[in-house]
Amino acid sequence: MNSHFPANFRSWLNLPLILIATIVLSGCLGEDSSWHGKDIQGLMPELAFELTGTSGETVTASDLDGQIRLLFFGFTSCPDVCPTTLQKLSQAIKAMPPELQSQTQTLFVSVDPQRDTPERLARYVDFFDKRIVGLTGNEPELRELAKRYRTTFGYDEPDADGNYAVSHSSAVYVFDRDGKARLLLRPDLSTDEIRQDLIALARENS
């Protein structure tokens, strides 16, 4: 009994070690990229939606094929996250080489269809950049799109004036020309880091 115990024990010891090594390695591989944003290649489905544009027209993902697309969920009454993010995105895009700017498209999806009419949405996105595409839809359509990208939104109770806060994703989803999900830009990234990522992505397969 005692004679083969150490041999057994050693082989048992190996397993946790292999497990730990796997965890550490996969952790490293996940971070192993030159992107500032989070690499989400293969984690999410490709870009697909059918929503309403700012002139009331139907816009689908294929209408914008061949461009780098930045998808962002928000609402026009948003006090902090949305204006900051849209400002950052438009600055980053304006700082790109001119030929790449026209191939990069920001999509702002309002998840507050009750207040954000297409007209109101149009005024809002134009304030940041004429090239931003404002999109909205009815709540089930928006829920479906949010679910597809593993995010959600919720409404607070309205105050006396009927104003209410909307909780939504604070990240920007970046899709490449083929519509594949590539990067997740966290809100703490700087304008310059976003610019570098977008240039690298635009040059990659142009």
């Binding site: 969920f73 949010a146 593993r150 995010t151 959600t152 939104f153 919720g154 607070d156 806060a165 909780s167 939504h168 994703s169 604070s170 990240a171 997740l184 966290r186 809100p187």
Partner: peptide, 12 residues
């Protein structure tokens, strides 16, 4: 675990 921050919480 900031993923819940990034992807939005079910309620605030």
């Amino acid at each position: 675990y900031d993923v819940y921050e990034v992807c939005g919480r079910a309620w605030p």
